[in-house]
Write a protein that binds this DNA or RNA. Structure first.
Length: 914
RNA sequence: GCGCGCUUAGCUCAGUGGUAGAGCACAUCCUUCACACGGAUGGGGUCGCAGGUUCGAACCCUGCAGCGCGCACCA
C-alpha cells in the first residue's frame, strides 16, 4: 500500500514500542509487494549502466520448491542484488520448464485417479488441452514460492519453454541441425522406460547398485546328447530371445564348442556357439547367452555376427512370446522367477547366486530401463570443440574449478543424443512425411537429408503448404532440447535482434547444480556457439547438493526433505536464506540442519533489537530530514576510540566483502556479516557506548553516539541487503536511513570509507580495553564474583589515557568502579591479572586467599614458561635462524621478548605473595 | 576398473608453510532497563594412518585406509 508519494507510509509506531522479537512474516510480504510496485526488479535494455545478467535455471512448471531451489535461487538473488548495489543494470530472467516426462506423468496420473481415463482415451489434442489446463492452474506455484523467498527476478519477462515464440526457436534449431546433417533418424538400441513408454537419453539413466541373482544354467549340445554348456545370466526371462551363446576365442575350455550348436530350452531351438572377444573369461561360467533385442552389448555382437533379433518384450515390460505360453504376458520380473523355475523343472538350472550389480533406472519413473531397439531421432552435437575449449581455456570459468574436468571428460566421450520422446507433452518434431511415402518412410532403416532432398519429407518450422497430404511425426523432443537454448531464446524471438539480447547477452553468471553439467550446462555452451553470439555465460557457479544429517540425498520417499515454505513460516525467508548460505561450503555437499535456520532467525532478531535499542535511546529522525548526511555529528578526532574502532571495522568489512564476492565465497560473506554485527557491533561497541545513551549522558555524547550508530548501521544494512533483503529494507526505512521514495536495495554502495585514518591510536586503545575487560571478567569469574556488580578494580601501571575510559571499563566488566593507582600496594593474595592496560587487581574482602592466588599465578606462569621454551627452542635452532626468512625470525624474537617480560611480571607478583 | 572429492573439537565446517579456529552443543553463573531468538565465563582436538620434502607441515609430495560422487556394455 503505497501513499501518494509512491512509498510506504512511514511506520507510525516507534520501534521502541514494537515487540521484543522480530516478526518477519508481515514485514517480508510487505516489502516484496513494495519492490514490485516500485519496479525495482525491472531491467532496462536502454540503460547506460553496465549490464549484469543471469537466467534462472527454469524449474519444472509443475514442481514445488525444495531446498535445492532455495539455495540455488538465493545465490542468484544475492548476485543480482549485489550487482544492483554496484550500480549495474541487472536482468535476472525467470521462467519455467515444461518438463515433458514429469508433467505428462503427473497429469496422466491425475486423469487415471479422478476420471479413470488414459491419455489415449482422450486423444492427443484433448490430452494436451488438459495438460495446458493443469499448467495454468499449477504452473504458478513455484513462481509464487520464489517470490516468497524474495527473488528479485524481472517477472514481466517470465518465459516458458513452450511459449509460442520459444517453440519457434526449438523448431528452428531442429531444422538447422537437420539440414546440417547433424540430426538423423535411425533404428538403434536405446534406453527404454517401460513405465513412461518412451526412449530416454543416456543421461536420464541412473545406474543403481542392486542385489540381483545370477542364474547358472546349462544348454545341451545339439550334437552330443548329455553334454552341456554352462552359462550364467541375470536375466533368464529373456532367454526366449537368445540367438547364440558366445565364448571368448582365447578360452581353451570352450574352444571345442565353437561353431557347434546348443539347444535353447524354451522355445526349443538350436542356436550356435560363437566366439567373441567381448566375453570375459573370468566372469560366471565364461559363456554368455546372446540376446540382441534386449542388451546393448548383445546387440553389437549380434550385428557383428549377423544374428537374428528376437524381441520378446512389449514396450511396457511384459513378455511377448506366444511360443512360450508359460511366460507369455507376464511382467518381466515375474517372468524372471518363473523362468528360473522352468529351468529347474527341466533340470537345467545348476545354481542361483546372490549377485551385486548395477542396473540402469529411469530417472523419472524409478524403474529399471529396458534396452530396446526402436526408431528414434538422434543428434550429433555441434560445436563440440569450441565448447570444450571455452571451458578449458577459461573463457567460461567454472567454480569450483574441478568441475571443468568432469565437463572435459564428458565432452571427449560424446555419444549421439537421442532427442525423440514418445510423449505428447513437448515440442513435436517438425518433420512431416508425405502420405504416399508414409509406409516406406516409417519403416526406413534411416532417414536424413537425402530423403528431404527427394521431397519425401518436409522439415520446417511451419507445416507444408498442402498440409492435408502430409503426416507429422508423432514424437516430441527431449525437454533438454529446448532447455539448451534458454539463455538466448528467452531474450529474443527467432530472427529478432532484440535490445534485451544486445544488452544482456551473454549472461554474466549461471548458478546451477553440478548434477546437470551434461544435461544442461554443456549443451547450452554448444548451442550458444552454434545459434547465438558465442558463449552463453561467463561464470558457472555450481552449488552444493543438500543432504540430511546422515548424508543422504534429500528425497520425497525418504521424507527427509523439509518444506521450505514451512521453514519460512517458522523462521522467515531471510532466516532461511541466511542460514542456508552460511553453512554452504565452497565445493562440498551441505548437511542440512534446521538449527542453522533457527540461527538465521536469531541473527535477524539480534539486528532488529540492536536497532530497537537505538530507537529507545533517541527518537529516530524521519527519512528525508537529512538521510544522506546523517551519521557523524562530530569530527572523527573528537570521538571516543570505540566509535573510531567500529567504523574502521566496518570499513574493513566492506573491503573483505568485496574480496569475497569477487571469488563467489558466499558462505564467507555470511560469516563476515554475522561476525561483525554480533561480535563487534553488539558485543563490543554497543556495550561500550551504552553509558552515552543513557539519560544521564550529555546531549553531545548522546548525539555523537547516535551518529556513529547510524553511520555504521545504515551502511551495514546495505551490506546485509543481498542476503537478508527484507529486514534490511524494513530497518533502513524505520531508522530513516533512506530518503523518501528510496529503497535500500536500490542504493549504491558507498565509495568512500567512513574513517580513512586512525586519529590517535583509537583502534589500539579500543582493542586494549576490550581485551582487558575480558581478562577482568575472567578474574571475577574465577573467584566466583561474576554476578556482583559492586566490585572495585584497581589498575596499576596504567597508561595515562585510561583515566578517560574507566567508566566504560567498569560497564564492560560489571564493576562498581575502577581506580587508577600507580602506587597501589595490594594486600597479599589479592587476585591480579596482567592486561594490556597494566596490572589489574580485584581487591575484595573475604577473597584475600594467598594460597588460591599463588596456585592461579603458578598455573599461568607454567603456561607462559611453555611458550617461552617453545620460542627459545626455535631461536636456538641454528638452521631456523639461518634459513628462515628474517622477518619470521624477528617475529619470533619479539614474541619471546613479550613472553619473557610477562613472565618477569608474573614472577614478581608471585614473589610478592611471599 | 578409471576419475574426482572428502577425512580438523560431540555435531556442522573455516583454515595455501610460521602460536590450531568459528558456530552450535556441553558445563557453571546471570531473568541488571536492546535482545533468554539474550549476556558472561569455561572445558574440549596425537588436524584419518604411514612415510617423504622443509629450519618449520593441518597445509606440499607419495602410499594406505574409510566415506561420498561421477564415468564405464562384466552377462
Amino acid at each position: 500500500m503505497l501513499d501518494k508519494s509512491g512509498r510506504l507510509p512511514y511506520p507510525s509506531a516507534p520501534m521502541s514500542e514494537l515487540p521484543k522479537a522480530y516478526e518477519p512474516q508481515a514485514v517480508e510480504s510487505k516489502w516484496y509487494a513494495a519492490w514490485l510496485e516500485g519496479k525495482c526488479f525491472e531491467a532496462d535494455p536502454a540503460s547506460e549502466k553496465e549490464a549484469y545478467s543471469i537466467v534462472i535455471p527454469p524449474p519444472n512448471v509443475t514442481g514445488i520448491l525444495h531446498l535445492g531451489h532455495v539455495l540455488n535461487n538465493t545465490l542468484q538473488d544475492i548476485l543480482a542484488r549485489r550487482a544492483r548495489q554496484e550500480g549495474k543494470e541487472v536482468l535476472w530472467l525467470p521462467g519455467t520448464d515444461h518438463a515433458g516426462i514429469a508433467t505428462q506423468a503427473k497429469v496422466e496420473r491425475e486423469l487415471r485417479e479422478k476420471e479413470q481415463v488414459t491419455r489415449r482415451d482422450l486423444g492427443r489434442d484433448e490430452f494436451l488441452k488438459r495438460v495446458w489446463d493443469w499448467k495454468d492452474h499449477h504452473g504458478g506455484i513455484i513462481i509464487s514460492q520464489l517470490k516468497r523467498l524474495g527473488c528479485s527476478c524481472d517477472w514481466g519477462r517470465e518465459r516458458f519453454t513452450m511459449d509460442e515464440a520459444y517453440t519457434k526457436w526449438v523448431s528452428h534449431v531442429f531444422v538447422e541441425l537437420f539440414k546440417e546433417g547433424l540430426i538423423y533418424r535411425g533404428k538403434r538400441m536405446v534406453n527404454w522406460c517401460p513405465v513412461s513408454l518412451t526412449a530416454l537419453s543416456d543421461e536420464e539413466v541412473i545406474m543403481t547398485p542392486q542385489k540381483s541373482k545370477l542364474y547358472f544354467m546349462k544348454y545341451e549340445l545339439a550334437d552330443a546328447p548329455g553334454e552341456f554348456l554352462e552359462i550364467s545370466t541375470t536375466r533368464p526371462e529373456t532367454l526366449m530371445g537368445d540367438v547364440a551363446v558366445a565364448v571368448n576365442p582365447k578360452d581353451e575350455r570352450f574352444a571345442k564348442y565353437i561353431g557347434r550348436k546348443v539347444f535353447r530350452p524354451f522355445p526349443h531351438a538350436e542356436i550356435p556357439v560363437i566366439a567373441d572377444d567381448h566375453v570375459d573369461i573370468e566372469f560366471g561360467t565364461g559363456a554368455l547367452k546372446i540376446t540382441p533385442a534386449h542388451d546393448k552389448a548383445d546387440f553389437d555382437i549380434g550385428m557383428k555376427h549377423d544374428l537374428e533379433i528376437i524381441d520378446v518384450l512389449t514396450p511396457d515390460g511384459h513378455i511377448e512370446c506366444p511360443d512360450c505360453p508359460e511366460l507369455h504376458g507376464l511382467d518381466r520380473f515375474v517372468a524372471r522367477k518363473k523362468a528360473g523355475q522352468m529351468l529347474e523343472e527341466r533340470g537345467l538350472l545348476i545354481k542361483v547366486e546372490e549377485y551385486d550389480n548395477n542396473v540402469g533406472f529411469s530417472e523419472r519413473a524409478h524403474v529399471p530401463i529396458e534396452p530396446r531397439i526402436s526408431m528414434q531421432w538422434f543428434l550429433k552435437y555441434p560445436c563440440v570443440k569450441e565448447a570444450a575449449d571455452a571451458v578449458a581455456n577459461g573463457d567460461i570459468k567454472f567454480r569450483p574449478e574441478r568441475w571443468a574436468k568432469t565437463y572435459a571428460h564428458w565432452m571427449e566421450n560424446l555419444q549421439d543424443w537421442c532427442i525423440s520422446r514418445q510423449l505428447w507433452w513437448g515440442h513435436q518434431i517438425p518433420v512431416w512425411y508425405h502420405k504416399e511415402k508414409l509406409e516406406a518412410l516409417t519403416n526406413a532403416e534411416s532417414l536424413d537429408m537425402s530423403d528431404f532432398e527427394k521431397g519425401d519429407i518436409h522439415v520446417g518450422i511451419e507445416p507444408p503448404a498442402d498440409a492435408e497430404n502430409w503426416v507429422r511425426d508423432e514424437d516430441v523432443m527431449d525437454t533438454w532440447f529446448s532447455s539448451w537454448l534458454w539463455p538466448f531464446a528467452t531474450m529474443s524471438d527467432l530472427g529478432e535482434n532484440s535490445a534485451t539480447l544486445r544488452k544482456f547477452y551473454p549472461t554474466t553468471d549461471l548458478v546451477t547444480g553440478p548434477d546437470i553439467i551434461f544435461f544442461w550446462v554443456a549443451r547450452m555452451i554448444m548451442a550458444g556457439f552454434r545459434f547465438a553470439d558465442g558463449l552463453p555465460f561467463g561464470n558457472v557457479y555450481f552449488t552444493s547438493i543438500i543432504r540430511d544429517l546422515q548424508g543422504r540425498k534429500m528425497s520425497k520417499s525418504l521424507g527427509n526433505s523439509p518444506d521450505p515454505i514451512e521453514l519460512m513460516d517458522k523462521y522467515g525467508a531471510d532466516a532461511l536464506r541466511f542460514g542456508l548460505i552460511r553453512i554452504a561450503p565452497v565445493g562440498a555437499d551441505i548437511r542440512f540442519d534446521e538449527v542453522q535456520i533457527e540461527e538465521g532467525r536469531n541473527f535477524a532478531n539480534k539486528i532488529y533489537n540492536a536497532c530497537r535499542f537505538r530507537q529507545m535511546a533517541g527518537e529516530s529522525r524521519r527519512a528525508g530530514d537529512s538521510a544522506e548526511d546523517r551519521g557523524l555529528t562530530t569530527a572523527p578526532t573528537n570521538l571516543p576510540p570505540y566509535h573510531i574502532d567500529i567504523m574502521a571495522k566496518l570499513d574493513a568489512l566492506a573491503v573483505n566483502l568485496r574480496g569475497a564476492y569477487a571469488e563467489y565465497r558466499f558462505g564467507e560473506i555470511a560469516h563476515l556479516l554475522y561476525e561483525f554485527l554480533w561480535n563487534e557491533f553488539c558485543d563490543k561497541f554497543l556495550e561500550a557506548v551504552k553509558l552515552d545513551l543513557r539519560e544521564s549522558a550529555t546531549p553531545e555524547a548522546r548525539e555523537a553516539t547516535l551518529g556513529t550508530f547510524d553511520a555504521v548501521m545504515s551502511r551495514y544494512l546495505q551490506f546485509l541487503s543481498p542476503y537478508m533483503p527484507h529486514i534490511a529494507e524494513e530497518l533502513s526505512v524505520r531508522m530513516g536511513y533512506v530518503k523518501e521514495g528510496e529503497f535500500v536495495m536500490e542504493k549504491e554502495l558507498p565509495a568512500e570509507p567512513l574513517v580513512g585514518f586512525d586519529p590517535a591510536g583509537a583502534a589500539a586503545k579500543a582493542a586494549a580495553i576490550y581485551e582487558s575487560a575480558g581478562r577482568m571478567r575472567n578474574l571475577k569469574s574465577e573467584y566466583n564474583v561474576a554476578t556482583r556488580r559492586d566490585v572495585r578494580f584497581v589498575a596499576k601501571g596504567a597508561p595515562a589515557w585510561l583515566a578517560a575510559e574507566t567508566k566504560v571499563l567498569a560497564l564492560l566488566t560489571g564493576a562498581g568502579e575502577i581506580d587508577i593507582d600507580g602506587g597501589y600496594d595490594a594486600p597479599k593474595g589479592t587476585p591480579v591479572s596482567l592486561t594490556p592496560i597494566g596490572e589489574i587487581y580485584l581487591p575484595l574482602e573475604g577473597l584475600i586467599d594467598v594460597e588460591a592466588e599463588r596456585t592461579r599465578l603458578t598455573k599461568e606462569i607454567e603456561k607462559i614458561r611453555m611458550e617461552v621454551k617453545k620460542c627459545e627452542g626455535k631461536l636456538s635452532n641454528a638452521s631456523f635462524v639461518d634459513r628462515a626468512p628474517a622477518e619470521v625470525v624477528e617475529q619470533e624474537k619479539q614474541r619471546l621478548a613479550e613472553w619473557q617480560a610477562k613472565l618477569g611480571q608474573l614472577g614478581d607478583m608471585l614473589a610478592a605473595l611471599g
